[in-house]
């Protein structure tokens, strides 16, 4: 990606910018803390961090309305924080404790919130795509004008069920936005090594689904694209594809040695295209906030994340009897 170009819209208010800054920072600090807790052995199994991709979910949540649904893969911490789920409950799920969103029974990859219309948290690559269309199917069935954001990665974009879903979503005009978070690597395989045609946003053309490519390191661009997609879906015109170009700074999971890309590539992204730095600059340049104001926010976020980590350490492990609950409704 080229160097940053300013996308500050005159209609983006100071309050909005500050909110995006705060939300993206929360995700980043939360994920850094999660990485730390993983290193301490407090989080087990697989843990996929969202660092670098924060603008995607924050921008799209800014385009969503109350009652809209979202569903994603196993790289799900950012989505949960962005839709308003409690960092304490998310972190406690990562540590496998009673206070977690799934009482410790789901873990990092399998978390849900009925209250926030977050439908997971799915560990099978691509499985969330038809499920997401199914959520939209239910909304259309109920005629309630809600839309669903179905997130998946560039890796999942090669799964067959994605195209089965594109076909039916277009055929039945389902109100679903397919968000392809293109972070350029499917685990350790670069997109050019796995994908015959690079433009994933055109993958819906065969089914009559429009798509566009979006700069995923620019929260304002993401929000604007999200609003276009939402408008089409809510108007009953069927699905829409957003290919959001983004980048994850960390490995695929915690145990990724990252030999498939250079240190310089990652460093360049961080230095030139970081989504949080972008908003920080807009805030400072526009005189919407001073350095001190932003430091205050940093401190507040750090406190929230530390409180979440404390809660996640203090919350007890689930009672052993929980082994046998929630198998049947």
């Amino acid at each position: 990606m080229a160097g940053r170009k300013s996308t500050a819209k005159s209609n983006t208010s100071k309050d909005d910018l500050l909110a995006y800054y705060r939300e993206m920072l929360l995700i980043r600090r939360f994920e850094e803390k999660a990485g730390q807790l993983y290193g301490m052995g407090l989080i087990g199994g697989f843990c996929h961090l969202y660092i670098g991709q924060e603008a995607v979910v924050v921008g799209l949540e800014a385009a969503a309305e109350e009652g809209d649904k979202r569903i994603t893969s196993y790289r799900d911490h950012g989505h949960m924080l962005a839709c308003g789920m409690d960092p304490k409950g998310v972190m406690a799920e990562l540590t496998g404790r009673e206070g977690g969103y799934s009482k410790g029974k789901g873990g990092s990859m399998h978390m849900f919130s009925k209250e926030k219309h977050f439908y997971g948290g799915h560990g099978i690559v691509g499985a969330q795509v038809p499920l997401g269309a199914g959520l939209a199917f239910a909304d259309k069935y109920k005629d309630n004008k809600r839309v669903t954001f179905a997130y998946f990665g560039d890796g999942a974009a090669n799964q067959g069920q994605v195209y089965e879903t594109f076909n039916m979503a277009a055929l039945w005009k389902l109100p679903v936005i397919f968000v392809i978070e293109n972070n350029q690597y499917a685990m350790g395989t670069a997109q050019r090594r796995s994908t015959s045609t690079p433009d994933l946003h055109t993958r819906g053309e065969a089914f009559g689904i429009s798509g566009e490519v979006v700069d995923g390191m620019d929260v304002l661009a993401v929000k604007a694209a999200g609003e276009r997609a939402v408008a089409q879906c809510r108007a009953g015109q069927g699905p829409y594809i957003l290919e959001v170009m983004t980048y994850r700074y960390r490995g695929h999971s915690m145990s990724d040695p990252a030999k498939y890309r250079t240190r310089e590539e990652v460093q360049k992204m961080r230095e030139e295209r970081d989504a949080i730095e972008h908003v920080r600059e807009l805030l400072l340049q526009g005189k919407h906030a001073s350095d001190d104001d932003l430091k205050t926010i940093d401190r507040e976020i750090k406190a929230v994340v530390n409180a979440a980590a404390e809660f996640a350490k203090e919350s007890p492990e689930p009672a052993e009897a929980e082994l046998w609950t929630d198998i049947y409704a």
């Binding site: 499985a127 795509v129 038809p130 199914g134 959520l135 239910a138 067959g160 039916m168």
Partner: peptide
């Protein structure tokens, strides 16, 4: 594969 996933998703949403 696709329609089963769609049906399961709709069930998660209450149908």
């Amino acid at each position: 594969h696709g329609f089963t996933g769609i049906a399961v998703g709709s069930a998660m949403a209450g149908l």
